[in-house]
């Protein structure tokens, strides 16, 4: 514990023993002082000395998803109905973890997002894509438990799936009826 440096032989015998004793007592005092400061923690005295261990996943003593602040960047979710397929997020993503494929939708102006995959094994949760998303369909959820056993499970896909021929036929059909009504047949 305490201790002192080498005895300096310079001064007289009395002064060295005096400084020696002073050094020993100052060291003992500083050790005891440190010990005493830890005592209040035994009784968790006061607000600052409570135990702070968070025993996750126990909901009482550890924070859960809804205690997280509003801006916390968890796993992403894309509301495909509002997504316009503008691919801004795919461009800005630093390590290309978003893959988008689009096809022409029911009327040529509308885009049918057939494939919208986010690869969470590559995603660094930087939030640039959410910032770039004009329609605001891509958002951060509060979900942060992304542990999986198989790497493929980390790929989340929000796409609507390919446009099948009969869907095209159906769209073409009601487009025609729509145009016929306008022309007044």
């Amino acid at each position: 514990m305490g201790g002192m440096g080498a005895l300096d032989m310079s001064g007289s015998l009395f002064s060295t023993t005096l400084s020696y004793l002073k050094d020993v007592f100052s060291s003992v005092r500083s050790i005891l002082e440190s010990c005493v400061t830890a005592i209040p923690y035994l009784f968790s005295a006061g607000e600052n000395r409570k135990e702070v261990t968070e025993q996750y996943p126990d909901p009482i003593s550890s924070r859960t998803a809804d205690d997280l602040p509003s801006r916390s960047r968890g796993l992403l979710f894309n509301d495909i109905d509002r997504c316009t397929g503008c691919r801004e997020c795919e461009k800005i993503c630093p390590n290309k973890s978003i893959a988008i494929e689009t096809q022409s939708g029911s009327d040529p102006a509308k885009i049918w997002v057939s494939l919208f995959d986010i690869d969470f094994s590559k995603c660094i949760f930087c939030g640039l894509c959410v910032e770039e998303c004009i329609p605001g369909s891509l958002v951060h959820t509060k979900q942060y438990e992304g542990a999986v056993y198989v790497l493929d499970d980390l790929k989340a896909s929000f796409g609507r799936g390919g446009v099948t021929p009969e869907m095209q036929a159906r769209w073409a059909a009601n487009r025609r009826t729509h145009e016929n009504e306008e022309v007044g047949f």
Binding site: G3, S26, S30, S34, T37, N48
Partner: peptide, 18 residues
């Protein structure tokens, strides 16, 4: 407040000084 507590507990503790 904590800085003061570190000073009492650790910064001038003799073993740390040595």
């Amino acid at each position: 407040v904590r800085l003061k507590e570190y000073n009492d507990l650790f910064t001038f503790n003799h073993a740390f000084l040595k």
